[in-house]
Nucleic acid binder design. Structure first.
Lengths: 235, 235
DNA sequence: TTAAAAAACTGATAAATATCAGCTTCTGCG
DNA sequence: CGCAGAAGCTGATATTTATCAGTTTTTTAA
């Protein structure tokens, strides 16, 4: 599953989306028996770094950023989770406090599942456990990839990569493959690419001038994905 | 387990060291039945990014860096694994190629365990599986931490952090807690901190002038860990 | 509806860090 | 032992990116 045959998009996505499919009907029913749904508006915090986890979250719809905040202000986005994905399970499994924070980057509907139910299913279903092991192992790939990009790529390259990755996350919402419109703030782009917000704006302007994308406020339309990939310098 | 009560060292170490202790004697015997030991000299590559895993590695003695190389040359170190730790299991579990490379940073004795044996034990021992889940979940903490440090900290801070982390890895080899001597090249320090080698040299000189450390070639003695922690600006 | 707040944007400047070129000192190997 | 190559080191310079101080526009909420 490689974007345009060149950009290894699988290196940028966790794989918790399909995990729940491994559960039998009964198991799934038990998992969600005590769930509680909650609507989060854009910007709402779901959990905060340092707090104690009481369960896990299943994103029914919407998108969520996982991020770490430095000495106040500047936030670095670690990962953007899409609908269908689980979040907050690391801290439950490692029996630690949350290592990062999570917030909705668009209006989202999210189910909370008490940790006891999650652990119980884990003990019950070996297949589920295996799939979770696989997903967690893949996350190493994703995060190692992120580390090397942030450490070694230039600002324009990192922004290009952030846009390519986001495009993929926004893809499934549109019916056709063409004209995928991202809806993301300059600040979140800055947080993903690890660059200053002002520079995101300047770089977006450049990309626009080069005909790579169009933008109207937070709506960004990527017109020339191939040139964007070239810009990202990724192989 | 917090260094001097201020630096959260547990945020910098994977926890595969004690995993094998969860195995019964029989299980352990089966795991290592087909192992083959190999000696790696400093600098020797253990596996390379992009190749297909055939098994996992147990570091009997020595230290190993896991790293990713950019468009030739510059390498970013993702993690330094110590004796007792397992490496190379992510790729086996996720059924992917290695996402990173591994090389010995000191002479090391390493056992290779065929992936079939590893998987077999995994299916056999639920406790082992649980502990592995826990370890993998904890790795998210470590890697997210690394991402935010590389993205948000200055070069002197990152170098200070690299030194603090390495000090902990070299600790157990010395009998006393005092006078821990690191043995690491400028290049590897540059790779860990994500800065240019020349700047590592300059910064080390500064730290030296400030009385924080002493160095003789690759041997680095941290004299004032408290000042180093202050320098790292970590909370 | 409108005032206030937040986000987007701009240009100028400062700071941090990389790069380059050359030199010196180690280190390992024939 | 000596030599070649690697690693360590230095100073000068270039480049990148952040920061600052505003202005304009958009969004939010009373």
């Amino acid at each position: 599953m490689s974007l345009s045959g060149i950009f290894p998009i699988d290196r940028w996505n966790f794989t918790t989306q399909s995990i729940l499919n491994t559960l039998s009907e009964e198991e799934y029913a038990e998992l969600v028996a005590n769930q509680s749904d909650q609507k989060y508006l854009k910007g709402d915090v779901i959990f905060r770094e340092g707090s104690v986890p009481a369960g896990i979250f299943l994103i029914r719809s919407g998108k969520v950023k996982k991020y770490k905040v430095d000495n106040l202000a500047k936030e670095q986005i670690i990962y953007v989770a899409n609908h269908g994905e689980l979040i907050g399970y690391h801290a439950v499994l490692s029996e630690e406090r949350y290592p990062d924070s999570a917030a909705a980057i668009e209006d989202s509907l999210i189910s909370f599942i008490p940790k006891e139910d999650f652990i119980s299913i884990l003990h019950r279903s070996p297949v589920f456990t295996q799939r979770l092991l696989k997903a967690l192992s893949h996350e190493f790939t994703v995060l190692a990839n992120t580390i090397s990009v942030i450490a070694q790529r230039t600002a324009p390259e990192r922004l290009a990569i952030a846009l390519i990755v986001l495009r993929e996350k926004y893809k499934d919402e549109e019916s056709g493959e063409k004209d995928i419109i991202l809806n993301v703030s300059r600040m979140d782009l800055a947080g993903m690419a690890g660059i200053a917000q002002e520079n995101v704006i300047r770089l977006l302007k450049e990309f626009k001038a080069e005909g790579i994308l169009e933008s109207d406020g937070r709506k960004i339309l990527i017109k020339d994905i191939k040139r964007l990939i070239k810009k990202s310098n990724y192989r």
